[in-house]
Nucleic acid binder design. Structure first.
Length: 865
RNA sequence: GCCCGGAUGGCGGAAUCGGUAGACGCUGCAGACUUAAAAUCUGCUUUCCGUAAGGAAGUGGGGGUUCAAGUCCCCCUCCGGGCACCA
């Protein structure tokens, strides 16, 4: 059985085998299973309206090659695909056209699925998932409830990025240089009620966990930098006013404490009002107003001169009782550390700049260590290490010692303590949008909350955290209650309009009959307030949370759902989870180096903590494919008109050529341009393979023979190829694996005859790369259909070593000849023979050999003059 | 500014335990087959000198280590990515 064509015709061959694989369930993963598992995962796509991009098949093909290879090597392979389908584009399209996002999403998914299937991936389609499917997102909501129960959810008024154009709040990470990442619209600061996840509680574990991961080093470093752990001390300064309030600052350099010549508070610091001298109040207020009006872009622009204003207050330095002025300045961030700093202009560039600007004193307290040799101390500011001066009893200590001693001293005086800060902020988890997972939470008054929390044995009681989660809503303190797991999924209601409310609330806030409900504080049942209040004390009035989750939510845990996509009882069956553990290989773009990969690690660790998963990290081995540029070397974009559509390539050359070419373009991790004529090359190669094994009549080529021994050189070439391709797939060097197969097929083309077994073995090597053609030729040569099921050939390394070796002979490092000799020829004999070579002799003539270099089996070099 | 990664023919790229630089592919040129074209096949294709044999130079630039450097060390230029007043 095979496709019906005499010549190589991808259009008839490819659908034939895709259909064959589907009907036979060739790529179904099975669990439980005795075989070792291999789980290959791609970052699942957002199914956009534009359809598949040429970049998608790059990573997918690489994963596919590895998965097919692992299958041939006897692994039980899980290679799934799904859709990250919540998100802004469908919602914005809905706002424009009124089309329900679910409808757009469904159509886009169908298109994506069709396109991806055309490429012939070894995907287990029975495990397809979709983040917008209530059967999927009920578990996303379930995870949210775990976070809530663990006390990792809180609600806070936060100054957040508000994008007027998108009418939505954006996370810090979604704002780039003062503009929205999506759509590049201007953004501004607004105070809005936000649901926040305490990812900072996991900061240390997220750093430590990186150690054991087989990830690109640069990605680990990026995560580390993003988390930005810094160790230092908090120091308390007493403000010299009647009330004697204290200001706590954070510093990584407690050793420079004697050099603190002023304090700076962020303009938003809560103590500013109380410490500011009445005479300065008007000026300070004006400055704060100006700072507030500044966009963050202005505030963080390093090139801008530093601004600030004196509060009139003074603070007392706890180590030397120095009385130093207290300023406010917007170069100090309210959101980091304590929102206040001690300024040490002699040893900090920013403080130095500020001190110069406002003529504040500068006191050197560190002398550089050894480098005194040249007689001059370096210019200020000096940020390096050294030894302390002008620092009282601590003078003379090294900076490292002083950091510890001064911190200890502060602790004893109750004037400070060692402290750790992170650049990482808590994760603003709410979006004021429609097309996202609704949060399974609602808001009640204190009395109702007390009622619910009194009994921890009910569905609602069991889902509660230790303490209350509260928020001010409409000027009243409200208490959060969970919609318990038993009541999930909480599905999205239908809405009239997809426009955000414009008040900073999602469109969900515009549906009163959904928004206002009667809530059963024991069972967690809800009933619209448009109905009559049911009888019983346990029914209370509640208002639903209207925020939805960000797009990251669904992608934080999808790797788990593939293991058990239809489970109604649990997010994943524990037995299956233990078997599959987590992806053995995860391929996706480096643009997700921080956000998706950090959030997913956070959630995975939380799930580990609640016992839902056995592993501690979600992705043990990670690989980033590089992006494919247009043939002009520029990033592909509609406006540049350099976009290549995979469909067009498949129509012209077939999926096998597309797959092969994407892999042949260059190293998988590199950024590389698309070369339109390069595809001809790999297509030509495939045609050559066809002609090498298939005759004019479409049957086995007369060159193929059965019985007898393969010619030595061809046999050697085959085993070289098996060896190289095997190693290259393991190392994801797919471009060089293809080169090797080209070399082999060139040799086959020149050969008079080829053993059938040689052809079959080669087809096996080619199968992960060009699976359709390989299946087809395999079947035509009489192989049992399903080359995908055949075991991988083993390289016989003994065939690769030969009895003779070739020496390169150099004179003064320049190649002057070659020498073929038996492998075990001794040094003296080789050197003597090398000198006999005519050209070598001519270059040695009239010279004295000063040195003879002999590298066994490799090279001879005569140094002569 | 700081932290990463990179730079090799006309082009994409091979070769890094230091040991023949340019595998493989594209392009180009010449030839074969053909009435012709397509397809296919063969040869050549880093630069310079030379009819050739051969020689010299050569992996972004400069210096160094070594018998030997694309590969190791120092300095610099350019390109890509990340961070960006985080105290």
């Amino acid at each position: 059985m095979h496709a019906n064509c005499e010549q190589y015709d991808p259009a008839s061959i490819e659908p034939f085998w895709q259909d064959f694989w589907e009907r036979n369930g060739t790529f179904r993963a099975s669990d439980p299973d005795e075989r070792p598992r291999f789980y290959g995962l791609d970052m699942f796509p957002y199914p956009s309206g534009a359809g598949l991009h040429i970049g998608h098949p790059e990573g997918y093909t690489a994963t596919d090659i590895v998965c097919r290879f692992k299958k041939a090597r006897g692994f039980n392979v899980l290679h799934p695909m799904g859709w990250d389908a919540f998100g802004l584009p469908a919602e914005q399209y809905a706002i424009k056209t009124g089309t329900h996002p679910a409808q757009t999403t469904k159509a886009n998914i169908e298109n994506f699925r069709k396109q991806i299937k055309q490429i012939g991936f070894a995907i287990d389609w029975t495990r397809e998932i979709n983040t917008t499917d209530p059967d999927y997102y009920r578990w996303t909501q379930w995870i949210f409830l775990q976070l809530y129960r663990l006390g990792l959810v809180y609600v806070d008024e936060k100054p957040v990025w508000w994008c007027p154009e998108l009418r939505s709040v954006l996370a810090n990470e979604e704002v780039i240089q003062g503009r929205s990442e999506v759509g590049n619209h201007p953004v501004e600061r607004r105070n809005l009620r936000q649901v926040v996840l305490k990812i900072t509680d996991y900061a240390d574990r997220l750093i430590e966990g990186l150690n054991d991961l087989d990830w690109p080093e640069s990605t680990k470093r990026q995560q580390q930098a993003w988390i930005g752990r810094s160790e230092g001390a908090e120091v308390k300064f007493t403000i010299d006013t009647k009330a004697k309030p204290e200001v706590t600052v954070f510093t990584t350099r407690p050793d420079t404490l004697f050099g603190a010549t002023y304090l700076v508070l962020a303009p938003e610091h809560p103590l500013v009002d109380s410490i500011t001298d009445p005479s300065r109040m008007a000026d300070v207020e004006a400055y704060r107003e100006k700072a507030r009006a500044k966009s963050d872009l202005d505030r963080t622009d390093l090139a801008k001169e530093k601004t600030g204003i004196f509060t009139g207050a003074h603070a007392i330095n706890p180590v030397n009782q120095a009385r130093i002025p207290v300023w406010i300045a917007d170069y100090v961030l309210a959101s980091y550390g304590t929102g206040a700093i001690m300024a040490v202009p002699a040893h900090d560039e920013r403080d130095y700049e500020f001190a110069k600007e406002f003529q504040l004193p500068i006191q050197r307290v560190i002398e550089p260590g050894q480098s005194k040799g040249n007689g001059h101390t370096p210019e200020l500011p000096f940020g390096g290490d050294g030894s302390l001066v002008h620092s009282g009893d601590f003078s003379g200590l090294s900076t490292a010692e002083a950091r510890k001693k001064i911190t200890d001293h502060l602790s004893q005086q109750d004037a400070g303590k060692a402290s750790v800060n992170y650049r990482l902020r808590d994760w603003i988890f709410s979006r004021q949008r429609y097309w996202g997972e609704p949060m399974p939470m609602l808001w009640v008054n204190q009395e109702a909350w007390e009622k619910a929390s009194a009994n921890r044995e009910t569905p609602v009681g069991r889902a509660l955290p230790q303490g209350p989660v509260t928020s001010r809503i409409d000027d009243e303190v409200r208490y959060a209650l969970p919609i318990p797991p038993e009541q999930l999924p909480l599905t999205l209601p239908e809405v009239e309009t997809f426009q955000p409310a414009g008040t900073g609330e999602s469109p969900l806030a515009t549906i009163p009959e959904w928004l206002n409900v009667w809530f059963n504080t024991e069972t967690g049942e809800t009933l619209s307030q448009s109905e009559e209040r049911p009888a019983g004390d346990e029914w209370v009035a509640a208002r639903r949370e209207t925020n939805t989750m960000p797009q990251w939510a669904g992608s934080c845990w999808y790797h788990l759902r593939y293991m058990d996509p239809d489970n109604k009882e649990a997010l994943v069956d524990p037995e299956k989870e233990k078997y599959w553990q987590s992806p053995d290989l995860y391929i996706g773009g480096s643009e997700h180096a921080v956000l998706h990969l950090l959030y997913a690690r956070f959630w995975h660790k939380v799930l580990h903590d609640v016992g839902a998963v056995s592993s501690d990290e979600p992705y043990r081995k990670l690989f980033h494919q590089g992006i494919i540029l247009g043939d002009d070397g520029e990033k592909m974009s509609k406006s540049r008109g350099n976009v290549i559509n995979p469909d067009v390539v498949i129509d012209a050359y077939g999926a096998d050529s597309l797959r092969l070419f994407e892999m042949f373009l260059g190293p998988l991790e590199d950024m590389k341009p698309w070369n339109p004529s390069g595809i001809e090359g790999v297509h030509r190669f495939l045609k050559k393979v066809w002609r090498a094994f298939i005759g004019q009549d479409g049957k086995t080529s007369p060159k193929i023979i059965t019985g007898g021994e393969e010619a030595k050189d061809l046999q050697k070439a085959l085993h070289q190829t098996i060896h190289k391709v095997t190693e290259d797939i393991e190392g994801l060097r797919l471009n060089t694996a293809i080169s090797q197969m080209m070399i082999f097929i060139n040799q086959v083309t020149k050969a008079e005859a080829v053993q059938r077994s040689t052809a079959m073995a080669f087809l096996q090597l080619l199968a992960p790369f060009a699976p359709h053609m390989s299946e087809e030729i395999w079947a035509r040569l009489g192989g049992e259909p399903g080359i995908a099921n055949a075991p991988w050939p083993e390289a016989d390394l003994s065939l690769l070593t030969s009895d003779s070796v070739k020496y390169v002979v150099q004179v003064n490092g320049k190649v002057r000849g070659e020498l073929n000799t038996a492998k075990d020829t001794g040094k003296d004999e080789v050197l003597a023979a090398a000198k006999e070579i005519e050209k070598v002799a001519s270059f040695l003539e009239g010279k004295t050999i000063r040195k003879e270099i002999f590298v066994p089996g490799k090279i001879v070099n005569f140094v002569a003059n």
